[in-house]
Amino acid sequence: MSVSNQDIDPDSTTGVEDVTDGKEELIKHCEEMWKDMEECQNKLSLVGTETLTESNAQLSLLIMQMKCLTAELSQWQKETPEILPLNEEFLVSLGKEEFQKLRHDLELVLSTIQSKNEKLKEDLEREQLWLDEQQQVLESLMVLHSELKDQIVTVSESRIFNELKTKLHDIKEYKEKLLLALSEFLEDHFPLPDRNVKKKKKNTQESTIQLITLHEILEILINRLFDVPHDPYVKISDSFWPPYIELLLRNGIALRHPEDPTRIRLEAFHQ
């Protein structure tokens, strides 16, 4: 395992003025640091290498990282800030540099704040507009509300009765129309099987049974559902043509009794 000291960075101060005295001092300082680095480098080159494969990488890397981080932490805690030689020229030039950077930053801050102000103004106007619109919406809703309240006319029995009667009449008419359309539709598209086609195979007793139309089957189911709501099941009689029963069951219009396969009911479309 190699413990790496990566914090010793070359001192990269720029902007050193051309003063020979100070410059020499700085260079001497740098040379000392460089010698330190060379020593460390020599020590490092003695440490062996180690490669990783994907399988053992994670664990060993974690351990290594932990050790390095601990080492770094202790290094930071021990460290005291290094001071540059206190030459007046350095301090002045460093100070100038710092203030120039500050000025640049402050200019950026100024332009940021100006654009923020503008954005705030825009936002304020926009929000104000939205607020006004919302107020208008609220007012019109209140007006509507009071209007509707006013429309609640006092209850008059006969008026309600008449309204209900017309409604009832309309609905009955609609129901008749629907039933008519339904029966026409069923007649057109779901006729009874043609009785005249006789099978050449052996005759069973089928021809003696009177089949009823699909319309009638449905009527039976509907009536049962409404007459006896708690037991809407109807026993399948022989007069129901089996393919039509299948059709009704397969398309979810009728349901079988859960226990008795010979009884069916109409699906409760209304509840």
């Binding site: 290498t49 180690e50 490669t51 990783l52 994907e54 060993s60 290594m64 390095c68």
Partner: peptide, 11 residues
């Protein structure tokens, strides 16, 4: 290529 890199690099 990863096999030719020293483990210390991965820090």
């Amino acid at each position: 290529s990863l096999r030719h890199v020293d483990a210390a690099f991965f820090l």
